[in-house]
Design a protein around this nucleic acid. Structure first.
Ligand code: SF4
Ligand code: SF4
Lengths: 132, 132
DNA sequence: CCATTAACGACTTTATGTATCCATAATAAC
DNA sequence: GTTATTATGGATACATAAAGTCGTTAATGG
């Protein structure tokens, strides 16, 4: 049970977009170089972020990606969900109904984590970003 | 990002042990039948639970598994950790030190979930267990 | 000794994640 | 319009982990 490395890349890519010059798109070429991953692979994650409505893409010369919403409106959970999907991390095969305690406990636990991640916005990251 | 099905099996196996007759071991044969999984596969998870100190095993005739601690002292987190391991669900490759916010946020989020799971004991499950 | 039952290791199969290459489409700049 | 630039999509290869099986060993009660 671990977050995929794709999530790691996506978080770092967003981190770079946050600190980029506003309204100036950043190409996947530059991002891939900084993260140490191939362009085509990273572009797949970027596409997921686009489809999730977090960033905006522009093809053509001087194109690239830029944030779609404000920094204060993009949470960690948004990014993670965009990459990992929104499926629950526990799904039993049988499902005896909603009165089941096992399911209830694990799903509630997951919600605890998600609430925490939802309240953390990437705007908080923009403050540092001197080391990276 | 999902819990393995092994965790599902382990939780249900523990659920059966909780409601079993005290001090009377339950064999893997019976458990596997109820869960709809092969004996050998389930026994691997049971062994993990034994090594984690959650249950006790007894070989030989009339052997099997029984709880090692009290019901009130076995949490969901204990079971999940025994099966899934205790590794953090986010580990970056570079690791720029402890001041990194990305790591901090995700790890803290995980801790939120774990605290919730730690406070939920399997004794709570013993109350129902009429449908299953 | 003998039947029973857990524990262990080797193995196969399947699924998922990781990653690359190539073709295509869309846009901006000229 | 032409061309260079950039994102998107599909096909493919590879690695890793999960899911499950099989055979053997070891310990215990009768
Ligand atoms: S007891 Fe709960 S978790 Fe288990 S099979 Fe039934 S509904 Fe699913
Ligand atoms: S910024 Fe944080 S998460 Fe990213 S590589 Fe550095 S230490 Fe790891």
């Amino acid at each position: 049970m671990k977050y995929s490395q794709a999530t790691d890349y996506a978080l770092h890519a967003m981190l770079h977009l946050v600190t980029a010059v506003p309204n100036k798109p950043v190409g996947v070429q530059l991002l891939a170089e900084k993260l140490g991953v191939s362009q085509t692979y990273l572009s797949k994650m970027m596409t997921k972020l686009v489809k999730a409505g977090l960033i905006q893409s522009a093809p053509g010369a001087n194109g690239g990606y830029r944030l779609r919403r404000k920094q204060e409106e993009i949470s960690f959970l948004d990014i993670i969900h965009a990459i990992e999907g929104t499926a629950s991390l526990f799904e039993c095969s049988v499902n005896h109904g909603s009165e089941c305690l096992i399911q209830q406990v694990v799903v509630d636990a997951e919600r605890q984590m998600e609430q925490y991640l939802e309240n953390k916005k990437i705007a908080d990251l923009a403050k540092l970003m001197k080391t990276e």
